[in-house]
Design a protein around this nucleic acid. Structure first.
Lengths: 344, 344
DNA sequence: TTTATTTACGCAATCGTTATCGTTAAATGC
DNA sequence: GCATTTAACGATAACGATTGCGTAAATAAA
């Protein structure tokens, strides 16, 4: 089954005009008489004519549509980001195409391919945990494709970048744990190739050093699938729980990991914060509803989406190639609740 | 800035062939000699030629892309549904365009408009809570647009429909509360125009009747924004909590409402299940991590996405117009945890 | 009246691709 | 040796919309 829309040709035929006249009448050209304009406009409204964006895209090589590539839309951080993206895009007359890689490099490549071939005007990208080679993005970028890198930054790309101060977010969380009496602090991170992993890990380590606590690699666990499965975090935690000296706190360095960590503690009946204190990056609103309520590092996700989209639309609408790129760093928020309460 | 891709014309020019020959060579036509085919194929690979789907869409009036309209992607139920949709679509070579209405009728209309004008081959729709007039969908459907209605069903449309047994899901939950000793059971529902609201409300009422409990309209609260803001649920609950006789349980009839209900109880320090028992429709994995763990009615969201997509692709790929429509009804799962424990 | 200028529209090219219909040259049939 | 088939390719129209250019008729200027 196919679906036939009304075209400019239908109007032209019905009214005994040429397609050019109809087109110009619809675009209110000075070359067309008032009479004819009204005739066309009225008939167009009557039969509910809508210009075909596909045809326009083909001709104009632009579509007033931007693309988004994230790892998972079910992730609270990203769905909030998407809401920010859409709020700006829609207010400026742009549509948004959303795709998710589910942390698969292959799917990220095919999503980029899909978007780029669809005449989108630009793209907001946060890479998957599997992505170590950026050629699928850099190649497009070199050929003039507008890209803004956000959250999980593509370091070698020369374009606008928007992220949070991952280092400070992790430093603050770790320092908070230390000040509350925790000493053997483990850290769960996502795949080592992600910019957020490197920066958050560095913040954690610096905090320990500043407070004269030895950084112990036994307390570092890398979840190379970014916590896409619970089992991954379960295994990491099982290992951590057997370490000597016994850990007394865990800092989980991403949204997904924090969620799985909470689940682990619940299932294993590990008391928080008595047995281990917990704090993690998370934008899940739910975390405050847990018992104990979870301390978190929260990112301004909606704002990040807005800022990144504004930069992208600036690039798109700029007449000359943009060469002066912004490197926006937003602030995280440390929300202290009960899961990291002072140690007795 | 614009982005120029490689076209068939570039290949033709470089190789001294016509575009028709190149096109046929790429599609492995018998009319082209092996020699020429290899020449074209090799060069195409070398310069990384990709057919332009926009041009194909314009010509073929199909795009191997399907659209999705949901109310909110951050909603666990819908994000799981989308994963199901993508799993089938991608396995059959289709792409997916995701849009969210955020429960706004206006945005739903513009999303449908966006998708339909983009040569998508069909669309999966779950309507917004504000939607009372279906003309934006029915008009497209009449003109041959392939649509499958899922979850929040468009009742008057004659096409495939996929949902759960909302009546039974609500009946089971209510019956469970009754059997555990609750008598004054309130219900929170979304806007009255949604099919899921009507069916779940009916299930709740039938259960009460079957157990000789008078249905009390004071215990019914309609959240006309489907719980898009917490305040909406807060107000509904504030009203319910003052009712005489005092309610001793609440059944929340949708994902968003359940989440807000939990938050309300936490913030107001209402003991669950001692002060009020709680059960609700929810696909949030987190619900088991609460204290007390929340009893829920869970929908097979992923499966619903898969089934709906299979039906849609069948319609799309059918030679003749489909006239025999499926009305799939999946089963909900009652997951009993601590929030609805037997009353002492 | 003749020429110049508007006015108001139509023609055709264009975007990238495919399908239909030729066309040319070589190969085959008799 | 000539007609006919076949292999291999090219020219062109089409999809829907826009736009530069051309042009007829009407009006203004000379």
């Amino acid at each position: 089954m196919k679906f036939e829309a009304v075209t400019i040709k239908d109007i032209a035929k019905a009214l005994g005009l040429s397609t050019s006249t109809v087109s110009r009448a619809l675009r209110d050209s000075y070359e067309i008489s008032e009479e004819t304009k009204q005739l066309v406009l009225n008939y167009a409204k009557e039969i509910n004519y809508r210009p075909n964006p596909i045809a326009l895209s083909l001709k104009e090589k632009r579509s007033r549509t931007i693309g988004v590539v994230v790892s998972e839309i079910a992730n609270s951080f990203f769905s909030q980001t998407i809401n920010g993206i859409e709020s700006i895009a829609h207010s400026k007359g742009y549509n948004v195409m959303i795709t998710q890689s589910l942390e698969s490099y292959e799917r990220e490549v095919s999503n980029m391919q899909f978007l780029s071939s669809r005449s989108i005007d630009g793209c907001l990208v946060s890479v998957s945990v599997e992505t170590e080679n950026y050629d699928h993005i850099l190649d497009l970028h070199k050929r003039g494709f507008n890209i803004v890198s956000f959250d999980r930054i593509i370091e070698p790309i020369e374009t606008h970048k928007v992220k949070v101060d991952n280092f400070k977010g992790a430093y603050d969380a770790t320092e908070h744990l230390i000040k509350n009496g925790y000493k053997n602090i483990a850290i769960l991170v996502s795949g080592a190739s992600l910019s957020i992993t490197k920066e958050r890990l560095a913040g954690y380590q610096k905090a320990l050093e500043d407070y004269n606590i030895k950084v112990n690699d036994k307390f570092l666990r890398v979840c190379s699938h970014a916590g896409m499965t619970y089992e991954e975090v379960e295994q990491a935690m099982n290992e951590l729980m057997t370490m000597k000296p016994r850990l007394d706190a865990v800092f989980s360095a991403s949204d997904k990991l924090t969620t799985s960590l909470v689940k682990y503690c619940k299932l294993k009946k590990i008391n928080i914060p008595e047995t281990i204190g917990v704090i993690g990056y998370s934008n899940v609103d739910f975390m405050e509803l847990l018992t104990p309520a979870l301390s978190v590092v929260r990112q301004p996700a909606f704002e990040m989406g807005r800022v990144a989209t504004e930069l992208l639309l600036n690039m798109i609408e700029s007449k000359r190639p943009v060469t002066d790129f912004e490197n926006i760093i937003l602030h995280t928020e440390l929300i202290v609740r009960d899961s990291s309460a002072k140690k007795k």
